[in-house]
Design a protein around this nucleic acid. Structure first.
Length: 445
RNA sequence: GGAGGGGUGCCGGAGUGGCCAUAACGGGGCGGUCUUGAAAACCGCUGUGGGCGUCAGUCCACCGUGGGUUCGAAUCCCACCCCCUCCGCCA
C-alpha cells in the first residue's frame, strides 16, 4: 500500500492488504445482502462506487497476474538462452516492454486498491440477528434490573456538589491547568478512585479468570484501524503532533491488538484480559452535553475486559463478560439495569452490545457505566487475528470487550447513591479493605 | 542521540543476481514401517493469503516494511520500522 495524502496509512510498516482482502471476499460475495442488513447503520457508505471499484480491482488483479506469469516465463528463457550461449537480445527487449506494461497496470491496481480500502474500512459491523432494530437510545430493550434505588429523606445532590463540598473533586483548578472536561481528584477522592481500580482488577483477575495487563496508553495507526477507531473516527482521538501515535480512547484498543497478526492455537482459547488504563477522548460534537461533573471528560479511568473466543462460543462469552461487569456493581451494591442496544445505538465494531446503566439519584435515571460488545470477526479481520482449528484450518477469532467498569462514573454512582443527609458518603463494604478500612468519607481538614 | 551488528518457514540456520527457490541442511511436530509397549532407525508429510476451476489441478504474491535498479531480486541501491551490543542521556 502506497502512502498517500488523506488515505489510509500505516506507521509501523504494516501492509493493509490482509485487511482489505478479508473484507473484500465478504463484500464481493454479498454486497447487497450486507447493505440491506446494515440499513441506516451505513447510510454514508458509497456502495455503488465500492461495487464498481471491487469489480475493477478484480479485473486488474487477474490482468497483472497474467502479465507477471508471462514475464516470469520470458525471464527464465533469457537465463536458459544465456547459459546455452544463444542470442537473447530480442527476448530481453520483449520482456522490457512487458515489464513496463506491468508497472503501468500495477500502478492502476494500486490506486484502485487504495480507494477500495478507504471505502471498505468505513463500513460498520453487521448486527447480530437478535439485535432490536431502532434509531437511538429510545429503541434499546431492557433485559433485567438489579437492586433497589435508595429512598432519600432529603433531596439527593448531584455528585459534583457532594464532591466539592467534601473537597475531593476540583474542576476549577483542572480547567486552569488544562481546560474544560478535566478533573483533579484530591485526598479521599484520589484514594477512592484508586481503590475502585484495584477492587475491579482484583475481582476480574482473581475471581473471573481475566489475565491482568498494563498496556501502553498510546498506539499507532495500524492498531487503531484494527479495532475500528480509524479511519472513520479520527476526529474523536487525541493525536500526537510529531509522531503517528494516538492516545487510546479505551483499553480495548491495546488489549485487542495484543494479538494482531497472530495465529492463536485452539487450546489457548478463550483468552481473557483485563486492564486499567486512562482513556482519552476528544468528545467532538458533544458540546453542551453533560458539561458538569465527571460524566463526560477528556480523560477518565476505566478497567476494561477483553476476550478472544471461538466463533461458536462467542455469544456465551458475551454473557460471561457482561456478568463479570455486573459483578462489580453488585459487589458495590449499586442498582443498575442491563439493556440491549438497538441497531442505531451500537458502536461501529459491535455486532451486539449490552449496556449496563447505573442508577443516579440526582438525575432520577439510569446512566451508562459499561458497554459490553461482541465484535464477532469484524476486528479480527481488520487486525488479522486468527486461530488454528483442530482440523488444521485457520479461521478468524471473535473479539469481545466491555467496561468493567468506567471508574469515574462508578465514583459518581457511589457519591450519589451513598450520600448522607450530613453531606458525608458511606464507603461500600467491598471497598473498605482498599481504603484502609475507612467507612465514611467526610471533609478532611 | 552516536557507533556497530542483525531481521529468512514452528525453531536454529544456509543462501550475495537466473542453474540448488517447489527456500538447502539440522531440529521440532504429524503420519507410517518395525516393536509386547517404547526408544532408536527408516520412509513420507509438515507456511500464509489470493485468482481461475465441479474435481484433479493451475496461476499469482509473500524472505522486517515501502520504493528503486534489472529481461530477471531473499540476494544490488535508497528510505523507514523493529531487535541486539557498546557509549551518552534519562525515570
Amino acid at each position: 500500500m502506497t502512502p498517500s495524502q488523506g488515505g489510509v496509512r500505516f506507521h509501523a510498516g504494516q501492509p493493509l492488504d490482509g485487511i482489505t482482502m478479508h473484507d473484500l471476499r465478504l463484500l464481493r460475495e454479498d454486497l447487497d445482502a450486507i447493505r440491506t442488513r446494515l440499513g441506516t447503520r451505513a447510510s454514508d457508505v458509497a456502495w455503488e462506487d465500492l461495487r464498481k471499484l471491487i469489480q475493477e480491482r478484480h479485473h486488474l488483479t487477474s490482468q497483472v497476474e497474467q502479465l507477471r506469469h508471462q514475464l516470469k516465463k520470458g525471464s527464465d528463457e533469457v537465463g536458459r538462452l544465456k547459459r546455452e550461449k544463444q542470442p537473447v537480445e530480442r527476448t530481453m527487449a520483449e520482456m522490457k516492454t512487458l515489464s513496463d506494461r506491468i508497472k503501468d497496470a500495477e500502478e492502476s491496481l494500486r490506486a484502485v486498491e487504495e480507494r477500495v480500502t478507504e471505502l471498505a474500512l468505513r463500513i460498520p459491523n453487521v448486527p447480530h440477528a437478535s439485535v432490536p432494530l431502532g434509531k437511538g437510545p429510545a429503541d434499546n430493550q431492557e433485559v433485567r434490573r438489579w437492586g433497589t434505588p435508595q429512598k432519600f429523606a432529603f433531596t439527593p445532590k448531584p455528585h459534583w456538589e457532594i464532591g466539592e463540598t467534601l473537597g475531593i473533586l476540583d474542576f476549577e483548578r483542572a480547567a486552569r491547568m488544562v481546560g474544560a472536561r478535566f478533573v483533579v481528584l484530591t485526598g479521599l477522592g484520589a484514594r477512592l478512585e484508586r481503590a475502585l481500580i484495584n477492587y475491579m482488577l482484583d475481582l476480574h483477575a482473581a475471581r473471573h479468570g481475566y489475565q491482568e495487563v498494563l498496556p501502553p496508553f498510546m498506539v499507532n495507526r495500524a492498531a487503531m484501524t484494527g479495532t475500528g477507531q480509524l479511519p472513520k473516527y479520527e476526529e474523536d482521538l487525541f493525536r500526537l503532533r510529531d509522531d503517528e501515535y494516538f492516545l487510546i480512547p479505551t483499553a480495548e484498543v491495546p488489549l485487542t491488538n495484543l494479538h494482531r497478526e497472530e495465529i492463536l492455537s485452539d487450546g489457548c482459547l478463550p483468552i481473557r484480559y483485563t486492564a486499567y488504563t486512562p482513556c482519552f477522548r476528544r468528545e467532538a460534537g458533544s458540546y453542551g452535553k453533560d458539561t458538569r461533573g465527571l460524566i463526560r471528560l477528556h480523560q477518565f479511568n476505566k478497567v476494561e475486559l477483553v476476550a478472544f473466543a471461538r466463533p461458536e462460543e462467542s455469544y456465551e462469552e458475551l454473557e460471561r463478560l457482561t456478568e463479570a461487569a455486573e459483578a462489580v456493581l453488585q459487589g458495590l451494591g449499586l442498582p443498575y439495569r442491563v439493556v440491549t442496544l438497538c441497531t442505531g445505538d451500537m458502536g461501529f465494531a459491535a455486532a451486539k452490545s449490552y449496556d449496563l446503566e447505573v442508577w443516579l439519584p440526582s438525575q432520577g435515571t439510569f446512566r451508562e457505566i459499561s458497554s459490553c460488545s461482541n465484535c464477532e470477526a469484524f476486528q479480527a479481520r481488520r487486525a488479522n487475528i486468527r486461530y488454528r482449528r483442530q482440523n488444521g484450518k485457520t479461521d478468524f477469532v471473535h473479539t469481545l470487550n466491555g467496561s468493567g467498569l468506567a471508574v469515574g462514573r462508578t465514583l459518581v454512582a457511589i457519591l450519589e447513591n451513598f450520600q448522607q443527609a450530613d453531606g458525608s458518603v458511606i464507603v461500600p463494604e467491598a471497598l473498605r479493605p482498599y481504603m484502609r478500612g475507612l467507612e465514611r468519607i467526610t471533609r478532611e481538614e
